[in-house]
C-alpha cells in the first residue's frame, strides 16, 4: 500500500513540485522570466503525468482506452504551458489579441482533438464513454472561457493567491474522485494539489512569481479534462454538478477583482478569496460524500484497493 502511495503520489509531487521550487527559489533561475512563467504549468503537467503513468503506464496516442486521455491531458497541459507563456508574461503590456486568439485556439484543439485523431488515421471516438460532440464542444468552451476569465486574475494577483486557490480546488476534487471510486483520478488530483501547495510556498519565499498564462492554461486543461472523465467514466452515486462546481470554484476570483474589493487589506483580500473558494469546493465535496453514503463510507473497504 505504501509503495502505491509513494509511486503514484509522493514521487510525482516531488518531481512536479521540485521543478517549481527550483525555478522559483534559486536566484539564477528566477532571473529568467519566461522560465518562471512556464514553471508551474510544466511542474503540474509533469506531476500529473507521472502519477498517471505510475498506475497505468505510458499512454498511447491515439489512445487505445479512454482512461489514457487523462495522461494525454497532462501532455496537452505541458504543451499549452509552453505556448501559453509565449503569449506574454503577466505584468508586461499585453499584445492584444494574442492571448484571446490563443485561448480560442486552445479551446478548439480540445474540442477537435478526437477529430484530429481520426484525421490522423485513428478511430473517431469521443473522449469518454457516453460523451459526444456536445461534450467536446463544452470542454473546448470551458478551456477558452476559463482561461480568459482567470487571465485577468493572473495579471493582477502574482504570488501565492492562485496556487493556494488551485491547491484548495484540486484537494477538494480528490475526495470527490475517491467517492466515485477511481483511484488513479484521486491520486492525480492529490498530486496537482501537492504541487500547487509547494508552488504557493515557493511563491511566498521566492519573490511572488506568477503562475503565468502558461501555468493558468495548464491548470484549466487539467480542471476540465479530469472532472469530465470522472463524471463520464465512473459510477459515482452523487450529482454530476459536484464535479463542475468544484472545478469551477476558482472563477469566483473574477468578481473579486472589482475595485470595491481592492479596498480590503492584502491579507483580508487573500483570506476572503481562500474562504470563498473553500466554501464552494467544500459544498461540492460534502454533497458528493453525503450522496455516496457519508464520509465514513469513503474508506469502507480498507484502503485504496
Amino acid at each position: 500500500m505504501i509503495k502505491t502511495v509513494i509511486l503514484s503520489m509522493f514521487l510525482p509531487i516531488l518531481a512536479g513540485g521540485g521543478l517549481v521550487a527550483l525555478c522559483w527559489l534559486l536566484p539564477p533561475l528566477r532571473k529568467w522570466k519566461w522560465l518562471s512563467g512556464v514553471t508551474y504549468g510544466l511542474g503540474l503537467a509533469v506531476g500529473v503525468f507521472a502519477s498517471f503513468a505510475a498506475e497505468n503506464g505510458i499512454p498511447e496516442f491515439p489512445p487505445t482506452e479512454r482512461r489514457q486521455w487523462l495522461g494525454l491531458a497532462a501532455v496537452l497541459a505541458a504543451v499549452f504551458a509552453i505556448f501559453g507563456s509565449a503569449t506574454g508574461q503577466p505584468g508586461k503590456e499585453r499584445s492584444w489579441p494574442s492571448t484571446e486568439l490563443f485561448a480560442v485556439l486552445a479551446g478548439a484543439v480540445v474540442a477537435c482533438l478526437p477529430f484530429l485523431v481520426q484525421w490522423g488515421g485513428g478511430e473517431l471516438r469521443p473522449y469518454f464513454s457516453g460523451a459526444g460532440p456536445a461534450d467536446q464542444i463544452a470542454m473546448g468552451l470551458a478551456v477558452t472561457v476559463g482561461f480568459l476569465a482567470l487571465d485577468r486574475v493572473v495579471e493582477s494577483r502574482p504570488g501565492a493567491t492562485l496556487p493556494l486557490v488551485l491547491f484548495i480546488t484540486f484537494a477538494g476534487l480528490a475526495p470527490i474522485a475517491d467517492a466515485a471510486s477511481w483511484i488513479t483520478l484521486t491520486f492525480m488530483f492529490a498530486v496537482a494539489a501537492g504541487i500547487s501547495l509547494i508552488a504557493a510556498i515557493a511563491a511566498r519565499f521566492g519573490g511572488a512569481p506568477s503562475i503565468g498564462r502558461g501555468g493558468l492554461l495548464a491548470a484549466v486543461v487539467i480542471l476540465v479534462f479530469l472532472p469530465a472523465a470522472g463524471y463520464r467514466q465512473t459510477y459515482g452515486e452523487f450529482p454530476w454538478w459536484t464535479w463542475g462546481l468544484a472545478a469551477a470554484a476558482p472563477l469566483i476570483l473574477l468578481p473579486l477583482e472589482h475595485p470595491w474589493f481592492g479596498k480590503l487589506p492584502a491579507w483580508g483580500g487573500l483570506v476572503l478569496r481562500l474562504v470563498l473558494v473553500a466554501a464552494i469546493v467544500g459544498t461540492a465535496v460534502m454533497v458528493a460524500l453525503q450522496a455516496s453514503g457519508g464520509v465514513d463510507a469513503a474508506n469502507d473497504y480498507g484502503g485504496f484497493n
Binding site: W182, Q233, G236, A297
Partner: peptide
Amino acid sequence: KLNRTIIGPQ
C-alpha cells in the same frame, strides 16, 4: 464502494 471500483475505469 468496491463494486463501483471494480466496474469503474480502474
